[in-house]
Design a binder for these strands. Sequence first.
DNA 1: ACAGTAGAGATCGTTGAACAATTCCACAAG
DNA 2: CTTGTGGAATTGTTCAACGATCTCTACTGT
Lengths: 247, 247
Amino acid sequence: MTGTIDDVVIEDSAVPGLEADRGLVSRKSTTERVAGVLRKRIAEGFFLPGGRLSEQDIGNALGVSRNTLREAFRLLTHERLLAHELNRGVFVRIPSVDDVVDIYRVRKIIECAAVRGVTAKPASFARIKEKVEIGDEAARTGNWKDLGTANVWFHQELAALSGSERVNELVGRLTAELRLVFHIMAEPRRFHERYLPRNHEILDRIEAGDGPGAEQLLMKYLEDAEEQLVGAYADRADAARAASAAE
Amino acid sequence: MTGTIDDVVIEDSAVPGLEADRGLVSRKSTTERVAGVLRKRIAEGFFLPGGRLSEQDIGNALGVSRNTLREAFRLLTHERLLAHELNRGVFVRIPSVDDVVDIYRVRKIIECAAVRGVTAKPASFARIKEKVEIGDEAARTGNWKDLGTANVWFHQELAALSGSERVNELVGRLTAELRLVFHIMAEPRRFHERYLPRNHEILDRIEAGDGPGAEQLLMKYLEDAEEQLVGAYADRADAARAASAAE
DNA sequence: ACAGTAGAGATCGTTGAACAATTCCACAAG
DNA sequence: CTTGTGGAATTGTTCAACGATCTCTACTGT
């Protein structure tokens, strides 16, 4: 063990404000780049929930070795985007109803807490407003895909009010997981549209510095969205039951 | 892609209640077992923060190949226990002051929300009480190490009141990360002791079904703990500054 | 004496091949 | 219709190899 504990120095940088560019300097390993590609593909529905990701095929397609690919799989499995079954391979995860309920349980806790703390106008107002307007524009032009992503961004900005790196990361993961849910839903397009006016209401309360008010609206918002998704799952189950009974 | 979206069936098993044993059947991959070993070693301080984990050495010591070991490293890096530096290797992470602040930010949100929701007596009361008593016993016998872990368990039980799998996992990760912080502190033994009576106070309020009351106490508890840790970091920084100035 | 540099050694990043273990699928047998 | 039983396909894991990158030392020139 080379390093000792005394390496713990609270670094006050000699060139403040430059550390932000560190991300631009640091190259990324192949594993991370592969994971990024797969993450994007999963998000956009190229790999559908339940589908298997063959080491051989994807390795060939991306031009990376099996070992490197497996490391990327581990990353995404850890993010709950993939499910790893021993000796069977990795599959795009199929969130269960319980998952949906749990995801919203966490979202209620996190996002509501972030919004509740709002009192004065923080600097990130513009960012939230921006996301709402992007959503409006997408709805006006009928671009349902963009509407969905704008909505996701909106909620990520809300969570960002907490000012916590870990909260941001967590919410990012949760929404990525939710995208899987949307992909297994029959009609995802209209899902986000009905929540557009409520985005405005929440933004208004935040702009007014009314944290508790915004929280109340957001809580109701999340409860409704959850109920709708759970309902969609129940419909699927009913349909499956009816189909198997009809044989 | 073999599986289709229609695989999403809410399975009503032919043998209800047996799926719970699925975890017992599934063996674990070598990667996961290795990750488990490393996780434990890091938690108990065998690998100290800042120390480098050589692929070669640890691979030989554990009798696994470099590839398998690297997969395990990815897992732990994702949990923020290890830090991965390209072409330099993996190191036991050294949490910064910002990390400590952020960890407590999240803990306040999560644990307080979990505790706030308590109204009637849930079934998990006994579990919480148990953890408090384990802490008492450890303090009585002067077993500071056990006191620390008992305290961690206490908070994990508090978080478990939320009834969310994801919250449990998150808090588990945060406390694992906090253990790193404790390892770089000079005198970790006495740290937990002073919070013992406050554990009792919080437990009392929970048993009384007074969620908001418990939340208030818990919030103060977390604020004090955070302040103490941040203070310890500042001391370290001062000491480092003095040392370098004396040369 | 000192800054800069070249090079050797160590370690990581990534690949490719190999073999064992396991699962999957089709087909035969009861 | 259910229960073995093969063989093919895929994953789990190891090993060896080579280029890339970092680290440290020793050397050079001023």
